Amino acid sequence: MQFQTPLLPARLLRRYKRFLADMVLEDGREVTAHCPNPGAMTGLAAPGARCWLESAAPGRKLPYGWRLVELPDGHRACVDTTLPNRVVAEALASGAIAGLEGLTDIRPEFTLAPGTRVDFAATGADGQRVLIEVKSVTLLRDGWAEFPDSVTARGTKHLQELTIAAATGARAIMLYLISRSDGARLRIAADIDPSYARAFDAARAGGVEVLAIGSRVSPQGVHIGAAIPVDPGPQA
């Protein structure tokens, strides 16, 4: 996924009220940018961090949106939680994800039942229904990319819905996109959300496939990377 306009470098002054961040552009101007990330953003919002902003579309309340942050070791992370679905949508359409080639009739934001949606529904090469939920992973601790970075009742509900779908014969997939360039393996952050960890174990035992995919993150765009291993043991 390419960014539509060139990103502007800036320095983070502070993040506040979950969706707002004060930045200093290279020309010295101070601006308030939209922060499209409701999570804890652990390790991604240190004052002084080098960031990249995208100019907002005309009519938006704030002039910039925060897209990337540079990490202390030179790696980068995508902080915009709306972008991973676009990255995955392009990869599904082009067959770039191993094991998910040849999907047809790919539908985003598919309604399974009233009040129940999945990020993507598609038809597999064998005619089987394929359901995919996508989560963006930005937390890294002790060499592990971890999800979630804060309690997510909504994420737990998604796992439960996939488990039900798998029991009815659908191919149900939980896809974790590692939205930083230094994530090489994935596990669940059970200390942050024990309920999510229990739901994850139940989903995997119930036939839900778990995929973790790396990404290439640069000021030009965010692109799908290679599959990375998932901790095979119980997570709760």
Rank of each mutant, 00 (worst) to 15 (best):
89 A>N: 08
89 A>T: 10
90 E>R: 13
90 E>H: 13
92 L>N: 10
93 A>K: 14
99 G>E: 10
102 G>I: 05
104 T>W: 01
104 T>N: 07
107 R>H: 04
108 P>H: 01
108 P>Q: 03
109 E>G: 05
109 E>A: 10
110 F>S: 13
115 G>W: 00
116 T>R: 15
117 R>W: 06
119 D>K: 08
119 D>N: 12
120 F>A: 11
120 F>I: 14
120 F>K: 07
120 F>V: 08
123 T>I: 07
124 G>C: 04
124 G>T: 04
125 A>P: 11
126 D>H: 14
128 Q>G: 15
128 Q>I: 13
129 R>Y: 01
131 L>N: 08
133 E>N: 09
134 V>R: 10
136 S>L: 11
137 V>N: 10
137 V>G: 11
138 T>L: 01
138 T>K: 09
139 L>I: 04
140 L>S: 14
141 R>P: 03
142 D>V: 04
143 G>T: 02
143 G>Q: 03
143 G>F: 01
144 W>C: 10
145 A>S: 15
146 E>P: 01
147 F>A: 05
147 F>H: 12
147 F>L: 02
148 P>W: 09
148 P>H: 12
152 T>L: 06
154 R>K: 13
155 G>Y: 02
155 G>P: 00
157 K>Q: 15
158 H>N: 15
159 L>G: 06
160 Q>W: 04
160 Q>V: 07
160 Q>F: 05
160 Q>S: 12
161 E>L: 05
162 L>V: 01
164 I>Y: 12
164 I>M: 06
165 A>I: 03
166 A>E: 00
167 A>K: 07
168 T>M: 00
170 A>P: 00
171 R>F: 01
176 Y>T: 09
177 L>D: 03
177 L>Q: 02
178 I>T: 05
178 I>M: 06
179 S>D: 15
181 S>R: 00
181 S>E: 03
182 D>A: 05
182 D>M: 02
182 D>W: 09
183 G>D: 11
184 A>I: 11
185 R>K: 07
187 R>Y: 06
189 A>H: 15
190 A>W: 09
191 D>V: 09
191 D>Q: 14
192 I>Y: 10
192 I>D: 13
194 P>F: 11
194 P>S: 06
195 S>K: 12
196 Y>Q: 10
196 Y>R: 11
196 Y>K: 06
198 R>H: 15
198 R>M: 06
198 R>L: 14
199 A>R: 02
199 A>H: 08
200 F>C: 13
200 F>Q: 13
203 A>M: 05
206 G>Y: 12
206 G>L: 04
207 G>P: 01
209 E>A: 04
209 E>K: 02
210 V>T: 07
210 V>C: 10
211 L>W: 14
211 L>S: 13
211 L>K: 13
212 A>S: 06
216 R>N: 11
